[in-house]
Structure formats: C-alpha cells, structure tokens
Design a protein around this nucleic acid. Structure first.
Length: 290
DNA sequence: CACTTGACCTGTCCGC
DNA sequence: TGCGGACAGGTCAAGT
C-alpha cells in the first residue's frame, strides 16, 4: 500500500476513532507480523490506553499510556481497520458496517479489542508488514528512523531543501532517488510516477543531469500530488483501505499510474509502461523524454 | 562507497 | 479448467 498519503489517511482515521480507548485483549497469528514477547504484551499493551496516533514517513505510531508505542509498517498489503459494533447496532451508519462479519479473515494477523468491545484489525495478505511494541522514546533509535529523510509536506520543507537532498545522489536515476526513503520520506511507486509526469521528467534521467529549475518543479509536483491524494483518501490500487475499511479515490485522478495504453491527459499520446529502478514505471513518451 | 538486484510472502492475472 | 510465470503499493541484505 501505503505510501505517505495512505498512511496519513489511516493516521487521521485512527486519531478520530481510537484515541482514549483502553486495550483489553490482543490475538495474533504470525510472529513476523507481531514480533512481541508475551511478557511485553502483558506488561505494556494490555490495560494500556491510546494517547495519540502519529505518522513518520510510511510508519504509523500508536502511543500508549505505558510509555510504550505500537510501531506499525503496512508495507505492500497491510490494512488497519477499526470496527465499533455499538455504532452499528445503534445505527450510526459507519462505513465499516459492511465489514462486520467479514473480519477477521484469512489475512488478519492481529486483532486488538478495546474495553468497549470495538476492535482494530491488522490485516496483511503478504505478511511483509509488522506491528512492534517498544518504548516510545526508543523509536528515534530505530535504524530506519535514523536514516529517513525529511517529511516533504512539512511547512518548513522548502524547494531549496528538496534540491540539496537530491544533489546528494548525483549518480542515480531520479526515480530511484525519489523512492529512496533516506532522500525524502514517504514517496512510493505511485507518487513517484505521478509527480515525474507532472514535472515532465523521464524517470531514468540521472539526477546530476537535472537542473535546479527542474528539481524545483518536481518539488512542487511531489507536494501537490500527495496533498491531492490525501484529500481523496489515498489510492486504492489493490488492497488499500482506510481505518474504516473505505477505499481511496486518487486512482480516479491518476494521470499515468496504471494507465498504460490510455491517453496522456496533457498531450493525448499513449502512456507506456516499462521497468525503472526495479519497479513498474509509467510514462508519457512525448511529455517525458530521456 | 554508490548503486542495483534478490528476497521476503500470498494472490491474481495472463498466455498456453 | 489447469498450470507456469510474471507481477504487485516497501524495505533490507547481499551482490557488483
């Protein structure tokens, strides 16, 4: 899933839905998805309550009253879906109504129950994702957190910052650099292709060959595309759903991603697909030249 | 050192 | 309908 806009959408949903709730039970089916000792779970997760939900890059952080946090990476197919059975019984009409009776399913890796009987399901078809319990103040020491680049949507993150970060990777392709989380945080395959199309830059161009002005346009595109996607609730390419099980609609607005064979919305040429930086890559061959 | 490729898993889709 | 292979939103380890 889950690039920055999708994780941000889940974060906003969970902030609204689970802050203040107390955890009373946890079931997990897979040690890779939930690599926590029974002792830690009993001491720091059960009977704790949720203080806040945060996001850094594509990582979600649920802070608990025990000064521990659940650190969660959804990787490709992870979902976090909350269901409040009382809301449904009383006819509050939440989107998650349609999921009642469907979860847990065979992709459910962790099921967290709150004191009001509502539940949070961590589903992950491919089992790449994980949900790790750790002391809140140790999160910054995780290797990923130490190396991850700045948040591109932060107010304080300027085009000057963007350009100087990319200048540190002069020899690589612009698509590989965009996907590299240590350059800037949160861009994945969808938004890399979408923003490169917006900036009229071919994904295989080498960073050193790009002008400051081109990088500055790319900076704006990255931010515009991800802000638009957050507004649309993210992209549901395959598995992604938000905290209430709803799909995101950014794919309806995508200009190149998964649109191979269709017309470029700018010039009408057919979109093509090939492999770049090891990933399926979508390009308008007229707007984006090597 | 900088950069690229393979592995981690399961499910789906496409061609034979 | 069945089967093999390619491919899928991310990140790390191992390779060049």
């Amino acid at each position: 899933m889950p690039e920055l806009p999708e994780v941000e959408t889940v974060k906003r949903g969970l902030s609204r839905l689970i802050v203040g709730k107390s955890i009373v039970d946890v079931i997990s089916d897979n040690p890779k998805s939930f690599p926590n000792s029974k002792q830690d779970v009993e001491s720091f997760l059960l009977e704790s309550s949720v203080l806040s939900v945060r996001r850094r890059a594509k990582v979600l952080i649920i802070d608990l009253s025990t000064k521990y946090s659940l650190v969660i990476h959804l990787k490709m197919t992870g979902q976090l879906v909350y269901i409040n059975y009382d809301d449904i019984r009383f006819g509050a009409g939440h989107p998650s109504d349609s999921l009642v009776g469907k979860l847990p399913d065979k992709s459910t890796r962790v099921e967290i129950t709150f004191s009001d009987k509502s539940k949070l399901f961590f589903n992950d078809q491919r089992k790449f994702g994980w949900m790790k319990l750790m002391p809140s103040d140790e999160i910054v020491n995780l290797p990923f957190m130490k190396k991850v680049g700045p948040e591109p949507l932060d107010q304080s993150f300027t085009s000057i910052d963007f350009i100087s970060r990319f200048r540190r990777r002069p020899g690589t392709s612009i698509k590989a650099a965009l996907l590299d989380q240590s350059v800037i945080a949160g861009v994945g395959n969808i938004y890399a292709d979408e923003s490169l199309w917006g900036a009229k830059i071919h994904p295989k161009r080498i960073v050193s060959g790009l002008s400051d002005s081109e990088l500055s346009i790319l900076y704006r595109e990255v931010r515009d595309v991800m802000n638009l996607s957050i507004e649309k609730g993210g992209s549901t390419n395959r598995n992604y759903v938000d905290a209430e099980g709803k799909k995101g609609s950014y794919m309806d607005f995508a200009r190149v991603f998964r649109r191979e064979g269709l017309d470029c919305p700018r010039c009408g040429e057919q979109i093509i697909k090939f492999k770049a930086a090891g990933r399926g890559t979508h390009v308008c061959p007229v707007c984006q030249v090597l």
